[in-house]
Each structure stands twice: as C-alpha cells, then as structure tokens.
Design a protein around this nucleic acid. Structure first.
Length: 462
RNA sequence: GGUGGGUUGGCCGAGAGGCGAGGCAACGGACUGCAAAUCCGUGAACACGGGUUCGAAUCCCGUACCCACCUCCA
C-alpha cells in the first residue's frame, strides 16, 4: 500500500507519485514574522513535520523548504508603531518562532529562505512574466508591477473560483491596476517607507509583493516543478492561487500536490493575530510540556479543525503520560512499525488511526508486562518507540531531555526519596500502615508519585 | 453573491453503506494492607426531515445552525 495524500487542487485523495523516484521536494509556507507565534502556527509546522518524517521514514530523500516572510506591510507598520527598525522586529519574531518550533521538536528544514534574501530571484521572475505578457508596470507611475489576471485563463483553478464571481478586491488602493483582481508582484517604494525596506529594480526602488517570494524561492531550491506545496487553509486564496498562476504563467510546472492544514480555533473562531484571540506558544507551555502539546496536535487529523481548550489539552497530556508510563516500565530499542500504523499513515497521514494503534500496542505491552512476559512486553515497547519516532514523540529522543543539570539533581532526589521509602518499607513490614501512608503523603506533597511494583517501589515526578 | 469545510457518546476525537477507532472522565471487577499504576469489563453516539437500499452515522434531496476563504493571516 503506497502513500496517498489529499490534494486540494483535485479535491481528492491521490496516490503519491514523486517527480523523481526516491526524491521528494516539499515547499511549505512559513510565517510572516510580525508577531509572536501562537499554537495555530505551530500546528501547521507540526503537521508538515509529520509529513516530512513519514516521507523520510519511507525512504525518500526529502528536500524540505520552509520560507520566512521578513518584509511586508504589517511588519513595516508594526515596527513603525513600536518605533524600531523593521528588520529588528522581523528578526526578533523569527527567533521567537525558532524557539516555538524547537519546543515542539519541529525539525529544522533543509533550508529556510527569507524573502529579503531573494530579491534578485524575484526580479528575474517578474521580468520573465512581463516578457511573456502576464505582468505589467502600473500605468500611474507608482513603480508597482502587477500580475495580469485576465492574461491567464486558468486563474482561479486551484480554488475553483471564476474571476467574475470574486468580490471585487476591496484593495484599499487600486492604483494603476487594469483589473481590481490583479495582484502586486512588486511594490514601488512610498516616501513614508524606510529606505532600508526597498531594493533597486528596473521599475525603480521598491519591495516584493507577497506572493512572488514563494514562487521564486520554490523555483530556486526545488526546481521549476516539485512535488508538494503546503500551508494553512487560508493561504489557498489568494496566496497559493497567485503563486500557481505566476509560476505557471512563467512556464514552470510548479507543485504536483497541494496540502492544507486546518485551524486551531478558540470559541469556535479561527485563532488569528488580527482577532487578538491568539494563544501564544510560551503561555501554553506553562501548562503542559512541549511533547504533550505536540501529542495533542498529532492526535487530530491535519485537515480537521481542532477546537482548542486547556481541558482537551490536559486530557491529551494524560493520554500521552500513559504511553510514557509504559516506556518507563519496559525498556527496549525501537523495533518494527505495525502494519496498521503504516496503513494509517499512508492514508493521507491518518495520525488519529495511527495513534489508536499506538495505544493498542501500549495496552498489549502493559498486559504482557503484567503477565510476566518480558520478551513480549519488550517487543511491544519496540513497536511503541518506532511509532513515536515517526510522530516526533519519542521520550527517548535527546531533544526532549530537560537540560543538563537535571541528571545530577535527579540523583539527589533519588537519594532523598530512597531514604523515605526505606522508612516506609519498615513501617509496612511492621504493619504500621498509618506511618507508611504518612510517609507516602509527605513524598506526594513534594510532587513525587509513588508506585509499588513487583520490583519494589518506583518514584516519578508527577 | 461565489468557493470550501463542519454538526458523532459526559468530554476530546476518528471513521465514511453491514463488521462497537482510540483517548480522557465515570462506574464495576482483578491486583494492593489501603492506594497509585496496570489489566479486564460496563456505558452501544452520529444536527433535523424525507428518500435510495435487504441494510445508512456513512449515498441522494431538503432544512437548520456553525466555521473559513473571496482583504493581511498557519
């Protein structure tokens, strides 16, 4: 059974066939670094990180490109409001984003191109579009260059919209557009904008429009035609539609498959910077660990809207701790992936079904462990670890280790707790259960859980 | 107005014509001095109204409500 993916363009699950056997090129729209990342942003990154890990696991050589948009209207506006250089704002937010990705164990991409580093590539593409008659310099002398939507008959094909049915773009300033739906490839510099936010071009100083950067950078790093293009659903239109139009109008094959992840909502509404209902990643990570937040995201299908709540998040954390508890009991090396897991993942990254297989293996392993079948339990643990690796959720992964100082501290705690446990053992031997329970309560009050096993008591920080 | 998605048990969240996903919570049982952890079991849901079918949560028609995109947005 081969991998099948839902392709937004054809609105169907299709067999995945790469352009070049054994290789996959993936381009994912990253963020505009204008403010701190919220959990929704990170969901997108986690979803595509799972895709990337699965492709890799299936033996593909994956080229994974995720861009950063570090120049745009919002960045300029916000930076001006905060009275600091736009590049400082973008850079700071980029670092915040990196921290959030790291906290969720989103692997670094093959390369992470930034828009400002690719102006020459964009200008080249724009010139090509002008030559081919699909773009024109604004007639009002603003220095803008627009894509001519009417010159490209298949415009709208990605989202199945016809130009006629679109609401006339409420674009505040139609400036020199021939059609209100034409979009900017290049924006002439306005006097109000800092000189540092402009680059020389054949049409005068200016800065790139939003959509060209992705076409130019995908072309540069993945080639004129590549396999998968991803992003959030809101990017379908206009961003992805425009990307595809300008790339294909330039004669490029562009993406074979389009993948879009759904929202994390709060109170039924999309989480968004503009709505101000964002849950920032650091705030959420005060409640649960990064690995637990990642589990929460992976347990839902990437195309399903997730209604965020701390209750659901805590539930997910409990579920995940069950998995961890099993691995604490049974030591093993990663083993084979169960067929049902592979099947689930091959079916458009069916992580919910895959997670169900994971829980089945945990229950099976616990059962065997209880029954004294050490080999069987170890084998189950091997399957569990293999599955967790694919999902980026393996507690054994050094990435999740909590800092270097902890090991020494753990030994200290262990010595102290052992002393108390010895006292408790004596009390229990004397059937002085009141004293024994008092010790257990005392340990628990310090945040340490006690578990009596056949091999004696174990402690863990709950 | 156009386009896309949704409504599933106490909760989260899958599935997509027959075969009770999984998790969390609850309850009962096993284990335990009592717990904790673990295991076993219980609880049989699919917005509403029609229709197709031997059989529908799943297909068709209609209705209601919700969300998203068409403007910057994961």
């Amino acid at each position: 059974m081969a991998l099948r993916l839902y392709d937004t363009a054809s609105r169907a699950v299709r067999d995945f066939v790469p352009l070049v056997e054994g290789r996959v090129g993936v381009y994912v729209c990253g963020l505009t670094v204008q403010s701190e990342p919220h959990v929704g942003h990170v969901r997108s990154a986690v979803n595509f990180d799972v895709l990337r890990r699965w492709l890799t696991r299936q033996g593909y050589a994956v080229s994974f490109i995720r861009n950063v948009t570090d120049i745009d209207d919002k960045i300029l506006t916000k930076a001006a409001e905060q009275d600091r250089p736009w590049f400082n704002l973008a850079y700071d937010m980029k670092r915040e984003l990196d921290r959030a990705y790291d906290a969720l164990h989103v692997l670094p991409p093959t390369y992470e191109p930034a828009a400002t580093g690719h102006v020459p590539e964009m200008l080249e593409l724009i010139a090509l579009l002008v030559d081919r008659g699909h773009a024109y310099a604004a007639e009002d002398g603003s220095g803008d260059v627009y894509f001519d939507v009417r010159s490209w008959p298949s415009y709208g094909e990605l989202t199945r919209q016809s130009v006629e049915d679109m609401e006339a773009a409420g674009d505040a300033d139609p400036r020199g557009k021939r059609d209100p739906r034409d979009f900017a490839l290049w924006k002439g510099r306005k006097d109000s904008e800092p000189l540092t936010a402009s680059w020389p071009s054949p049409w005068g100083r200016g800065r790139p429009g939003w959509h060209v950067e992705c076409s130019a950078m995908a072309g540069k790093y993945l080639g004129e035609a590549f396999d998968i293009h991803g992003g959030g659903v809101d990017l379908r239109f206009p961003h992805h539609e425009n990307e595809q139009a300008q790339s294909r109008a330039a004669g490029h094959g562009f993406a074979s498959y389009w993948m879009h992840n759904a929202w994390i909502t709060t109170s039924g509404e999309k989480m968004s910077k503009s709505l101000g209902n964002s849950l920032l990643v650091p705030a959420v990570l005060e409640r649960v660990r990064g690995i637990e937040l990642r589990y929460y995201m992976v347990a839902a299908h990437y195309r399903s809207t997730v209604e965020f709540s701390f209750e659901a998040l805590e539930e997910a954390a409990s579920a995940f701790r069950r998995v961890e508890g099993f691995l604490d009991r049974v030591d093993a090396e990663p083993g084979e992936l169960p067929a049902a897991f592979v099947e689930a993942m091959d079916d458009d990254l069916g992580t919910p079904a895959a997670v169900a297989v994971l829980h089945d293996a945990v229950r099976e392993g616990n059962r065997l462990h209880d029954a004294g079948d050490a080999d069987g339990a170890r084998e189950a643990a091997g399957r569990v670890l293999a599955m967790l690796d694919v999902l980026g959720l393996s507690p054994r992964d050094p990435h999740w280790a909590t800092g270097s100082g902890d090991e020494g501290l753990r030994d200290v705690v262990d010595a102290l707790v052992r002393g108390l446990l010895d006292q408790r053992a004596h009390a229990r031997a004397d059937k002085d259960f009141a004293a024994a329970d008092a010790i257990r309560d005392q340990i628990k009050a310090a945040g340490v859980e006690i578990e009596d096993t056949a091999q004696g008591p174990r402690w863990s920080v709950g």
